[in-house]
């Protein structure tokens, strides 16, 4: 398992994406799949900055853990921001074209499973994004 912590500000989002990219093996995922996974993690990280940390907080962190076994990739995202209410996260209807609301849609479209885990000791929110290896 690979793990890193990032300051919870929008200028760090590119570093989160670079961290994930560096741990995706070309034997496990095609170039398109890799780009899509990076997009999904990018969207989830952006949601943490925007919503859990209300635009960003340089005193707070986002922890990203990557775990790969022979069948699945797991990307864990942890934060200490405002608790998420999973029932309130609804992707928008694609036919209703407007700015905003696409992030949750992309995450759900790309990943095979999206799950919020129970609150832990050190972190408020723990999101797990899962992608099956072919």
């Amino acid at each position: 398992m690979e793990s890193n912590e990032f300051i919870a500000t929008k200028d760090q989002l590119k570093n989160i994406r670079a961290f994930v990219k560096s741990h995706l093996n070309e034997k496990d995922f095609s170039k398109d799949e890799t780009e899509n996974i990076i997009l999904a993690v990018g969207e989830a990280s952006m949601n943490i900055v925007q919503h859990a940390y209300k635009g960003g907080n340089e005193d707070k962190k986002i922890k990203v853990e990557i775990e790969i076994n022979e069948k699945k990739l797991f990307v864990h995202l942890f934060d200490q921001g405002k608790p998420v209410v999973p029932e309130n996260i609804k992707p928008r209807d694609l036919k209703n074209i407007k700015p905003g609301g696409l992030g949750s849609f992309f995450i759900g479209e790309i990943m095979d499973e999206v799950k919020f885990m129970s609150k832990g000791k050190d972190w408020i929110n723990h999101l797990v994004l899962t992608k099956n290896l072919k």
Binding site: E35, L39, M46, P99, G101, L102, F106
Partner: peptide, 16 residues
């Protein structure tokens, strides 16, 4: 090289 939903939102806003 990369665009996410926030970038797409800017394009939608601009089109509108």
């Amino acid at each position: 090289k990369y665009i996410d939903s926030s970038g797409v939102s800017v394009l939608i806003e601009a089109q509108q």
